[in-house]
């Protein structure tokens, strides 16, 4: 894994555009995977994670 980070750091000196793209792809990919994994874990705790009745809904227009 560390080799990957070293490789990207090396790219920052030789191919900057690719380095920028890899930063975005790595962070977005990791963010998506972690979001899905965390969702799965939190679901196991039994907390209701769906839409719920919000306190501000009574104050919105059309009420």
């Amino acid at each position: 894994m560390y080799e990957y980070f070293e490789w990207v750091a090396g790219l920052a000196k030789t191919n900057r555009m690719m380095s920028g793209l890899l930063v975005v792809v790595t962070m977005s990919g990791m963010g998506t995977i972690l979001a899905l994994a965390a969702d799965l874990v939190i679901r196991l705790t039994g907390i209701n994670l769906g839409n719920y009745k919000k306190e501000f809904e009574d104050q919105l227009p059309g009420q």
Partner: peptide
């Protein structure tokens, strides 16, 4: 922002991860 700083070679990817 990540892309522009990545292009400038300033992002420490390992720390960010």
């Amino acid at each position: 922002g990540g892309f522009t700083y990545g292009v400038k070679g300033k992002v420490e990817l390992i720390a960010a991860c």
